[in-house]
Amino acid sequence: MNLLSIVVPCFNEEETVEIFLKEIQKTLNDYNFEIIFINDGSSDNTLKNIKDLANANSNVKYISFSRNFGKESAIYAGLRNASGDLICVMDADLQHPPSLLPEMIESVTNEDYDAVAARRTTRKGEAPIKSFLSSFFYKLFNKISEMGLVEGATDYRVMTRQVVDSILQLSEYNRFSKGLFQWVGFNTKWIPYENIERVAGETTWSLWGLFKYSIEGIVAFTTAPLSVSTLLGTAISIIAFIYMIIIIARYLLYSDPVQGFATTMCAILLLGGMQLLSIGVLGKYLEKTYVETKNRPIYIVKESNIDDE
C-alpha cells in the first residue's frame, strides 16, 4: 500500500495534537501513513506533547523550528521531508475534517486526479466581518490576477509525489501556498465541506494577521496594484489639467479670480494621499524583491527526529 505522509503545521497547539493523532489513527486504521508535525516556534507545550506522541508511535515524526517562521515555511518544511507516495497537508485543530481523507485518497489513487483539495462552502461560527472580508479577498484576487483561486479553498489537500516535487521547485522565500498549489497546475478535484470549529484551543489568526496574509498573496501573484497606481496618476493628471484650463478660461472671460481655500486643501490632500499610496504599493514590491535577493533560508531547524534534518 502507498505510504501517505501527513504534514501538520503547529503553532501553540498543545491541546490539539493528541486529539488529532487519535482521529487520524481511527480514520486511517487500514492505511500506511506517517505524520510529520512541524513545531513552528510554539511558546507552549506543543513540542513536548509531540515528542511524547513520537516516542509512543513510530510513524510520528517532528521538525521543530528555532523560532516562529510562519505557516507557509512549516508547510514547505513538511513537504520537503515527506517520504510518502501521497502527501497530505492539514491543520492540527481538526477544522480540516479527517473523515474526508478516505475519499481524497481514493480519488488520487484510483481516479484521474493529481490532487484532491477541500474547500469550505460555509463559514459558520466565524465573525461576520471576517467572512465578508474573506469572500471579498477571493473576488478581488480573481479580478486582478490571471490565476484564479477557488473560493473557500483551504490548504487541506492530498497530492501525488509529482505535484509535491513541482511545488518544492518553487523555493521562493515569500510563499502563498494557495497560489502555489494553483500555479503548478495539475488535475485537481475539489471536495466541499461545511466549516467546523476548532476542537480545542484558540486560533492564532487575528483579523490583522489575515489582512497581511491577503496582501502577501496579492503581491506574490499579480502586479495589478502597480498598474492601478499608474492609471490613477494618469487620471488625476488629466483631471487636474482640465480643471486648470477651466480656471484660466473663467479668469480670461469673466475676470473671475480663483477662490476657495477648502478646495485647494482638498486637492492637495487628495494628491498627497494618492502619491503616498502609490509609493506604498511600489515599496511593497521592492520589499519582496529585497527579501528574495538576500537568499535567506525559508526556515531553520532546531531539532528533529527525521534523518534528513
Score class of each variant (00 low, 15 high):
M274D: 02
I306K: 05
A74R: 02
K143V: 03
Q95F: 05
E103T: 08
G148I: 04
I87G: 08
A262W: 03
N55F: 09
I63Q: 05
I268R: 10
L79V: 06
N110W: 15
L101R: 02
F136Q: 01
I167P: 13
S206D: 08
M159P: 02
S83W: 01
D256G: 01
Y254I: 01
M265D: 03
V291M: 03
D307C: 03
I167L: 15
N29P: 00
G179L: 14
V60R: 07
P192D: 07
L271D: 05
L170Y: 12
T230N: 02
D308A: 13
Y213C: 02
G152D: 10
L226K: 14
V7T: 10
F69L: 01
S42D: 11
I87K: 13
G125H: 13
A267I: 06
Y138T: 13
I87W: 04
F137R: 07
R198L: 06
P225M: 13
V164R: 06
Y113I: 13
R161W: 11
L226V: 04
L94H: 10
N195F: 01
V164W: 07
V150M: 07
P98S: 08
S58H: 00
E202L: 13
I239F: 01
I236L: 12
L140W: 10
L226I: 05
D52L: 01
I35C: 12
I298K: 01
T160F: 02
V150Q: 09
G185A: 11
V116Y: 05
Y285R: 04
G209S: 06
S255W: 04
L4V: 15
P9D: 12
Y213L: 06
Y76W: 04
S42Q: 09
F241S: 14
N29I: 07
S64Y: 04
A249M: 10
E146Q: 14
V228N: 06
L232A: 05
S237Q: 11
I239Y: 09
V164F: 09
S43A: 10
A117M: 15
